[in-house]
Amino acid sequence: MTEFISANLPYLLAGISVGGQYALIAIGYTMVYGILRLINFAHGDIFTVAAYCMVYMNATMPLYISLPLTIVFTVALGLAVERVAYKPLRDAPRMSIMISAIGVSYLLQNLMWYVTGGLAQQYPTIPWISSTISIYTATTKMVTLVTPVLTLVLVVLLVQLIKHTKIGMAMRAVSRDFETSRLMGIKINGVISVTFAIGSFLAAVGSMLYFSNYTAVTPTAGAMPGLKAFVAAVFGGIGSIPGAVIGAFIIGIAENIIKALGWTAFSDAFTFALLIVILIFKPTGLFGEAVHEKV
């Protein structure tokens, strides 16, 4: 038994940790989807830009400046993307907005490639959370423990925000019925901006945690975690924040169990297989609501 635990504990810890990181990205997807019915394909790239931002700022500034500045920059980028690429298409068919999102993703990746010259960059070590600790038999980084805790704290805060503030109420209204909320005088653009700001903020935090673990930053480094976080959002029932978080943890842990079994090559494929299974048997995810189409 102890042997089993000591052999598998590192994987479990890694699973919980990466699950928390996926959760932080997944919230951005799920909130945007809830409000705009848009898969924000650029979200994974915003996550990567946050990492590069940290790399470059940390080279010239002390951590206590670069860290908040990275967050501010990421939020600004998220808002800018929304304003430039999604807002003009508000009344366009959904396919057009999705294509625009794909275009933004393409642009951001090429831009990062241009700025960095395509070389992998070493992510800076953030003191304390990058330090090594050992739990029972497993040696790991502090970030492994910090991630789930921080994730849960942020999620609780976010849920409180959505439940008890005016803007939160507006968000819930808009996600229930976009057109009616607009008619009721809710400032749709404001709500959408706040949604993007929150999503980008969480992506920036997620990026700091994620890249403290996987330290090589490349222009496409965020594509896969981004997709997986999206899968987590779908898995949990898109539009539902607790759903996204639970989905993310399940995917993070499952993926690492697959790795523990020696099927590393299939860890990504597994995530998508899970997605397809859930879409077939419960297309609205674990916590999603069924929608009836009016004829």
């Binding site: 997709l227 779908v234 090559a265 990504d268 494929a269 998508f272 397809i276 879409l279 297309p283």
Partner: peptide, 28 residues
Amino acid sequence: PVLRLKSDYLAIATLGFAEIIRAIFQYD
């Protein structure tokens, strides 16, 4: 399975299948 899904779910499911195919073809 996938053609029963609506617009963006279809998009993400087909994207997922493409990734699965890629993993399978690289499988040792």
